[in-house]
Design a protein around this nucleic acid. Structure first.
Length: 273
DNA sequence: ATGACATATGAGATATGA
């Protein structure tokens, strides 16, 4: 006798990315945002602490699984998830000598399949006449190589994080002010395009088109938030299989108005599950 | 042109960020 399988419960999955600028300094903001936004997966960057110091219990208490790739004082990335993570990879492949904690990746169940999600903290690269810029460009080359390898899996894939790249003049209030900055240098923009051109979709642009004024970062200085002097540098790049599932993408700019905010705000997408 | 602001480290001033 045939048993009719129960239909899989189809529900959208919310995947977010947020550079918190120190998870310890931002713990209260992060917890209240999670309670409000209820993402299924949250990619965090700039933890500024080692794995042992990450306040994992506070997130477990909210029902999140926690995986981290931390570092003392600088960098550090994490993924919080309603479901347990599998296939966890810590560190971007391609340079065994790179000690900076800027990449973590894991796989989660989605509908009848899976989605692979990476939390990325791409190097800033300033000043651009130093080895910091060289490191940024090299890191982007490594990211492109790894992204290409992941695309070959032909599965839903979301590369989410702080890319430290302003893709086009549309992504800055005052693009002329960023001329020569590592975030807007032609080399940085070209390497970002190289990754897009592998076959990725910029989720926010896919949903919002050429709408101006979409920013994810406002400097703490000179009243940048009050003047809306922002830039869009936090991105979610989708593989073709993830883009097929894209239902929504938005920037949660109200988070920038919190008490003691991060200088970045969360960006959230919804994928059909 | 510079600094402005925030965070970590570690106890004053410096490094980093974007």
């Amino acid at each position: 006798m045939r048993v009719t399988p129960a239909p899989a419960i189809m529900r959208p999955m919310k995947i977010a990315t947020w550079n918190v600028n120190s998870i310890k300094a931002r713990l209260d903001n992060a917890l209240s945002w999670l309670k409000e936004a209820k993402p299924d997966v949250a990619c965090l960057q700039e933890l500024k602490c080692e794995d042992e110091a990450f306040p994992a219990q506070a997130f477990s208490d909210l029902g999140y699984n926690v995986i981290t790739h931390g570092q003392k004082s600088y960098n550090g990335v994490a993924i919080l998830s309603r479901q347990p993570a599998s296939d966890v990879r810590r560190g971007l492949p391609g340079d065994a000598d790179d000690a900076q904690a800027r990449y973590i990746e894991a796989v989660f169940a989605l509908g009848s399949g899976v989605v692979r999600v990476a939390s990325i903290y791409l190097p800033n690269g300033n000043p651009p006449d130093t080895e910091k810029f060289t490191y940024k460009l090299g890191w982007m080359d490594r990211l492109a190589r790894h992204a290409k390898a992941l695309l070959a899996l032909e599965e839903p894939l979301v590369l989410a994080g702080d890319y430290n790249v302003i893709p086009t003049p549309l992504d800055a209030k005052n693009p002329e002010a960023w001329t020569g900055d590592a975030l807007f240098r032609p080399e940085s923009r070209a390497k970002f395009r190289n990754i897009l051109n592998l076959g990725f979709t910029d989720a926010v642009r896919q949903v919002s088109g050429d709408t101006p004024g979409l920013y994810t970062f406002w400097d703490y200085q000179a009243g940048a938030w009050q003047r809306n002097n922002g830039i869009r540098i936090d991105h979610l790049l989708l593989s073709p299989q993830a883009a097929d599932l894209l239902a929504d993408a938005r920037i949660e700019r109200e988070v920038r108005a919190q008490e003691r905010p991060s200088d970045h705000v969360p960006v959230v997408i919804e994928l059909r599950g």
